[in-house]
């Protein structure tokens, strides 16, 4: 089984600290790397993939540094944040090109292209030139190239940006199944991308890991603290003030219907009679963690 150790990683850009002493252990499963824009996700990914040298620390993959680690590079599949590809190439040419660089034979490349084309619904586009692809299809091509070598360690940086609802669902199904036997890291600021499919969560804020652990364990941290309330607008507005005064956090609010506003909040105590306990979700946990670190 592949194991990656991220030891004391720090990254400074001049006086700006992008990452501050990050320590993580990554093995099999689907890891959600969550954080606001500028939290340091992309810097961490660049360092993990060996494309950037950290100011301090090291990344170890199966007992060797990732830099010039043949085993790691063979196991790696990667999709960058703003995926782009040469516009003059056709999709299959591009996948072949990447496959060759990953050291695959033509038979392996063709087999894997067939497999990925079906999974990612690229059948109608495989012979098209890249310049003629829509944003969503280009994104799926980006996902396909990351998986062309059937990698055991996959890093996807904002993979679902530009995908429609069906494509997102298909993507989630695919990576969820894939991560049963392999490591998949999905970096995103869209919480729903990894909700229910992530086995582990890593939350980054301003270059610091503010939470790291099993998804279920993390949600258990706020078990019994999440409340939902449906009431008249004036009552909900009063409740909002109460939540803020008691040091709670509002995670959702719907106020279209004045007779039945909805409020979801996190608080260690129930703050109104009409509030009922709710099952915590990733959005609750994320907002709660982010708020606590302010």
């Amino acid at each position: 089984m592949n194991v990656m150790y991220i030891n004391n990683i720090s990254m400074n850009y001049g006086k700006i600290k992008a990452l501050n002493n990050i320590n993580l252990t990554i093995s099999k499963g689907l890891y959600g790397l969550l954080g606001e824009n500028g939290a340091g996700k992309s810097s961490l990914i660049r360092i993990i993939t060996g494309r950037q040298k950290p100011t301090n620390g090291e990344v170890i993959f199966n007992n060797a540094s990732v830099k010039r680690n043949k085993e790691f590079h063979q196991a790696l599949g990667y999709m960058p944040q703003n995926f782009k590809a040469p516009e003059d190439m056709r999709c299959y040419e591009y996948l072949t090109y990447v496959g060759m660089y990953k050291g695959l034979s033509m038979n392996q490349i063709n087999e894997n292209i067939d497999w990925l084309v079906n999974i990612l619904n690229l059948n109608d586009h495989i012979n098209k030139k890249i310049k003629n692809l829509s944003g969503g299809t280009l994104r799926r091509l980006g996902i396909a190239q990351a998986f062309i070598n059937q990698p055991s360690f996959v890093i996807l940086d904002e993979p679902t940006a530009g995908l429609d609802i069906t494509e997102r669902r298909n993507f989630r199904d695919f990576v969820s199944r894939y991560s049963e036997k392999n490591t998949v890291i999905i970096s995103t600021h869209i919480v729903s991308d990894i909700e229910y499919i992530a086995s582990d969560l890593i939350l980054l804020k301003k270059g610091n890991v503010i939470s790291n652990g099993k998804y279920k364990d993390q949600l258990n941290e706020i078990q019994g603290m999440v409340w939902e309330c449906k009431d008249r607008e004036d009552k909900i507005l009063s409740l909002r003030k109460l939540v803020e005064n008691y040091g709670g956090i509002i995670t959702n609010y719907k106020g279209e219907d004045p007779m039945e506003n909805q409020l979801r909040y996190i608080s260690s105590i129930k703050l109104s009679d009409t509030s009922v306990s709710a099952i915590p979700n990733l959005n609750d946990y994320y907002l709660w963690k982010m708020w606590r670190q302010q």
Binding site: T49, K70, H73, P80, K84, G103
Partner: peptide, 22 residues
């Protein structure tokens, strides 16, 4: 420079062959 523009560098440079031989 086109490999930076069209994203090829991002993809190829993480392959062991790419970094050394590309």
């Amino acid at each position: 420079s086109e490999t930076v523009e069209n994203g090829t560098k991002d993809i190829i440079s993480i392959t062991i062959e790419g970094e050394r031989k590309f």
